[in-house]
Design a protein around this nucleic acid. Structure first.
Lengths: 204, 204
DNA sequence: GTCTATAGGTGGATAGAC
DNA sequence: GTCTATCCACCTATAGAC
């Protein structure tokens, strides 16, 4: 039952924001009363915190299996981008991107968990980028850390804007272009092809 | 008086979101009652719509003076980035970026105005990028439209994330890196220097 | 675990006096 | 234009029975 509650609340936050949904909304969708919701998650902040943690774990699991897949650097980066793409295709915003917008209205524990999510994304990306640089697959222009941060920011922003237009193409184009910029090896541009591979691991 | 109301409401939305502020908040900050607020803006949607329109005009004016300034292409792009930087330094999110996150909870007229804002930004950027391409200042890898969209998305996302960390440096680094990627002329990277010019036009 | 009932507060919005 | 007073729907949260 806690999982069903989390599923519904997650969808509501990703589409409407933390201040745009209520226990009544969850109650109606799950089919139990508001009071029962409070049994599982005493306060809205508790619910939000559980949600961020679950999201980070599920994202982290997807990144782990990418790391373990033996793909090369560029394929892993495309896999990372595809995690965001799968979110957009459900007409949702990234949970943590949405919460980042509402940051100042959130309980402090949620604010901390939010940063932890972005930190772990950055760590994974830095690892991939530095490995790519060692093997010669990539020649970065700046620091791996700055490239990782730019990629996260660009993907969050691309989700944000694409959703306003209900246009996944906007996201795909921006994602392809930013990957190209990061992957570019000096004079030789990275592959200009649109990242188009089926069957990537998906995250809710 | 309408202007003071708009100023306060704008700040509240840029920091807390459309669903994170109330007429009571505006009332307390402006010093008139909620009922008087309703005289100027009958519904919250009316207030929000006026806000987007004012924001777009003020942004548009800043872009017009950039266009009229005789600066070269790269300086105009840095000026565009600086518009977002000035927002972050007030610890705010872009008004329209914030509203884009809450998009699905907004009245339809606000949703339309939101897209109009992004459209006009894109038009201005496409003009600048294509002019730069004609003069040879830029050699774009893809279409000017896609680069314009990527720049907007990356800046919105950089604001979103940087605000979670209360760290303007994150925004500056991402902005410098994305400009570099767009400005890169084949083998020769764009200027790697941090965009650091004082006295840019500012937007609220 | 789930329910009914309800507390105590805040939301956006209106009526009507001044 | 601004006020007081008020409406009522909705909010988060709790008490206590089953």
């Amino acid at each position: 039952m806690p999982q069903r509650i989390l599923d519904v609340a997650e969808r509501l936050i990703q589409t409407r924001g933390f201040n745009g949904f209520s226990y009544a909304d969850v109650s109606a969708a799950v089919g139990i009363t508001k009071a029962s919701l409070h049994y599982h998650f005493p306060s809205k902040g508790d619910l939000g915190l559980s949600l961020i943690r679950r999201y980070q774990h599920s994202f982290g699991d997807a990144l782990d299996s990418l790391s373990a897949s033996g793909r090369d650097t560029r394929a892993m980066l495309r896999g990372y981008v595809e995690l965001y793409g799968s979110v957009l295709r459900k007409n949702r915003m990234c949970l943590c991107g949405m919460l980042a917008a509402e940051q100042s209205t959130l309980p402090v524990p949620m604010q901390r968990a939010l940063r932890a999510f972005f930190d772990s994304n950055e760590r994974w990306l830095v690892g991939v980028l530095e490995a790519g640089q060692r093997t010669g697959a990539l020649r970065l222009r700046g620091s791996a850390r700055d490239d990782a941060r730019l990629l996260v920011a660009a993907l969050e922003g691309a989700l944000l804007v694409a959703r306003s237009y209900d246009d996944a193409g906007r996201f795909e184009a921006a994602a392809a272009r930013i990957l190209d910029a990061i992957e570019a090896v000096d004079g030789r541009p990275g592959s200009a092809r649109r990242a188009r591979e089926p069957g990537r691991p998906s995250v809710t």
